[in-house]
Design a protein around this nucleic acid. Structure first.
Lengths: 225, 225
DNA sequence: TTTAGTCTTATTGTCGACAATATTGGCCTT
DNA sequence: AAGGCCAATATTGTCGACAATAAGACTAAA
């Protein structure tokens, strides 16, 4: 059974939302640039009404910033923003792990274990191809978050912060060599969840994200400044 | 200096948002009821365009739930929802306290202390009047959250979860006798922040919110079931 | 030359109407 | 009589145009 949680973009506003989201995350629309409603409407060939709906949701996930009567700008990436974002992720995904250890069904856990093994093998085949690793990493986190069974937590992490995290990763070029270590950490987290040890799962996830943050920061000070 | 962080509702969509928010929180629009766009548009005497903008933001703060092409319903209160919400608040406001202990300026701390003393005195005068206590309580939490200086955290707690918390409190009739104890707990939290003891502040805030949650649960099982 | 003010221009916010989709009621079939 | 199918209705999604506001250019005065 495929997870039916991602609605397949029924309305036009949904479709254009996905397109713009991708464009912003991948830097196709430059960070910090001003957004022109008429221009985007023409570019995606629809009216301003659904476009504005999409912009409202983009603001919700912190990809753009709007000022009333003034317009919208694509968010600018900053060290401060990255720090704030990962601070929050540490706490929230830690909580997600603790709750997942309580609420995940045994079947979900074994599915997740299968997924990890699968990722490991495909990763061995495609060494260096960071895209798959990235997708796999996000998938793991995604499932744990869903396993928390807390609707608000799921909404915040999967709908609101998810794309911004991806934006930082993509635009800072995170193809780092942290791949194999991340796998081990995922495995350890999963074991804690399987043992219903929420406290340990929480701790391990916080460490895992902190390590990821330090990794990005290192990348940042090499590239930038 | 008054905090200029709440924009004074420039646009029509902003105004109607505030009105509908209040109406939902205070039960003027029944929980679980269906929302009719034409009806609300007529009721507030504006077009559907700004109304839909308002509805989008209401969905963002979990006061309504929308289904594409089907419509929107006011959220229903449930024990499960309350639990999820307070679970999240415990963690998030705990984090806010820890960060506030790091980032709040001394001036902000003394202002907050003054505010607490003021609340205490006015509360002694107006014993039983729960409204002021409620406002004061929210104000304290609000300031601590702002003190965290984490934009994402602030956004989540103040913009997205705040009104839902109020909705639970109002509609479950929270005028409880937890008043004086809450004051003491606030004081203790503030002291920890002033001592720059983030860990303690975190712990105390989590306990504070857990106590508040148990209080509401007790209220709930008296009223409901 | 700088600065203040005004006017032009462009963008956002709002409106009413149309198109597409879901819901409701009635009708027919079994 | 019950259940399913279809039409009628109502509601949502989308469109193009207008109004209100902000940004930018140009002029004029210090």
């Amino acid at each position: 059974m495929q997870t039916p949680l991602l609605k397949p973009a029924i309305t036009a506003a949904d479709r254009v939302l996905l397109e713009i989201q991708r464009a912003i995350v991948e830097g196709d629309i430059t960070a910090g640039s001003k957004i022109s409603e008429p221009e985007l409407a023409k570019r995606f060939d629809l009216s301003r009404a659904p476009l504005r709906e999409a912009l409202a949701r983009l603001e919700r996930c912190h990809l753009i910033e709007r000022i009333p009567n003034a317009g919208a700008r694509v968010v600018k990436l900053s060290t401060q923003g990255l720090l704030s974002l990962y601070q929050l992720r540490e706490t929230l995904e830690g909580l997600a792990c603790r709750l997942a250890a309580e609420h995940m069904a045994d079947s979900e856990i074994s599915e997740l274990r299968a997924l990890l093994d699968q990722h490991l093998s495909t990763q061995r085949v495609r060494e260096g191809e960071s895209y798959y690793q990235e997708a796999g990493d996000l998938d793991f986190h995604y499932r744990v978050i869903l396993g928390s069974k807390n609707e608000y937590l799921i909404n915040i992490l999967c709908d609101e912060l998810y794309h911004l995290v991806r934006m930082y990763r993509v635009q800072l070029g995170m193809n780092g060599p942290r791949v194999s270590r991340a796998f081990d950490e995922h495995k350890a987290i999963l074991n804690a969840i399987a043992n219903r040890d929420g406290e340990l799962a929480d701790l391990l996830m916080r460490r895992h994200i902190a390590a990821s943050r330090r990794n990005i920061e290192k990348q940042l000070e090499q590239t930038g400044t």
